[in-house]
């Protein structure tokens, strides 16, 4: 501070120069301000505690976390980010695929494959073949009524977990949080639309007065029943292919009518009938939903 060359250009004339000199004299005092003990300790031993209080005007930000400097660091970072993006995309696609498949909205071959896979691992998927309101399922199978005498039967919905094409005489809507057929949850729970069952069997149900069955809200006209047999689809390849099964006809030769107006279907000659009664299965399905044997 011996000279003030930087402010020399400020003085336009002699008065300015005197003014600047007076200002410097008014503020500058001879001698250094005394260093207090804390600062004197810094002079003696250096700074022992760093802190991060820096004015923002000249603050140099810390380097951003991430790749280290250099080409290899950037390359590694790029690869990691690509792998992360790929993994994220795969996860999103998988979740979407499973969700759509669980809803039964995949295209026909994909859905059937999805159902086979899920069946093999023991997960039940609502039948996609019942998602129709036009008399034909998405797979081309004509749905059949599941409720005898119940005009409210809605074949376009599958509330139960019946397999595609399964038939049942008793349409017992699922009771919230409970079982419907005598404490046994089975595939017959819920309004089950049934189509011509070339590969399925019928379930024999008996109405027992005073049974513990719970018709539930929106239930059919049937009394609570106790299902004594279960219905299973034939394993793949055990029965005739769906495309080769002749159209199902009633005993009098008339074709099976459309949904909601037909009679209960009967097992075909190639149906796989199991008459075993199974105990409720310990499965991860939520309570109130039918567990598939």
């Amino acid at each position: 501070m011996s000279d003030f060359r930087r402010s020399d250009d400020l003085a336009a004339d002699e008065v300015d120069r005197r003014l600047i000199a007076a200002l410097q004299d008014a503020c500058l005092e001879p001698g250094l301000p005394p260093a207090r003990p804390e600062l004197a300790e810094v002079f003696a031993r250096g700074v022992t505690d760093r802190e991060g209080v820096v004015p923002p005007a000249v603050w140099v930000p810390d380097p951003a976390p991430g790749p280290g400097p250099g080409r290899r660091g950037r390359l590694a970072w790029g690869l990691r980010s690509r792998a992360a993006c790929l993994a994220l995309g795969t996860a999103v696609v998988s979740v979407n695929l499973v969700g759509v498949g669980s809803a039964g909205l995949l295209p026909g071959p994909l859905q059937s494959g999805f159902e086979r896979v899920t069946e093999s691992v023991g997960i039940e998927v609502p039948a996609s073949s019942t998602r129709t309101g036009e008399g034909r399922t998405r797979r081309g199978r004509p749905p059949a009524s599941t409720r005898r005498g119940d005009p409210r039967a809605d074949p376009g919905r599958t509330a139960g977990m019946a397999p595609p094409g399964a038939s049942g005489q008793d349409a017992i809507p699922p009771a919230p949080g409970g079982t419907s057929d005598g404490g046994q949850t089975g595939p017959g729970v819920g309004p089950r639309p049934t189509g011509p069952p070339p590969t399925t069997t019928t379930s024999t149900s008996t109405s027992v007065p005073g049974d513990r069955g719970n018709p539930g809200p929106g239930g059919g006209t049937n009394t609570p029943t106790s299902t004594t047999s279960t219905t299973m689809p034939c394993p793949p390849g055990s029965g005739p292919p769906a495309s080769t099964v002749p159209p199902l006809t009633l005993p009098d030769g008339a074709p099976v009518p459309g949904p909601g107006v037909g009679e209960p279907t009967r097992p075909g000659p190639s149906a796989c009938t199991t008459t075993t009664t199974r105990a409720p299965r310990q499965s991860p399905t939520p309570p109130g939903r039918g567990a598939r044997p």
Binding site: P33, A35, E38, V47, R50, G52, V54, D62
Partner: peptide, 18 residues
């Protein structure tokens, strides 16, 4: 004088960011 001490202490403690 106290302000000068304070200013230099702050500056020295944050010198690694300058």
């Amino acid at each position: 004088d106290g302000l000068v001490n304070d200013v230099f202490l702050r500056a020295f403690r944050s010198l690694d960011r300058f």
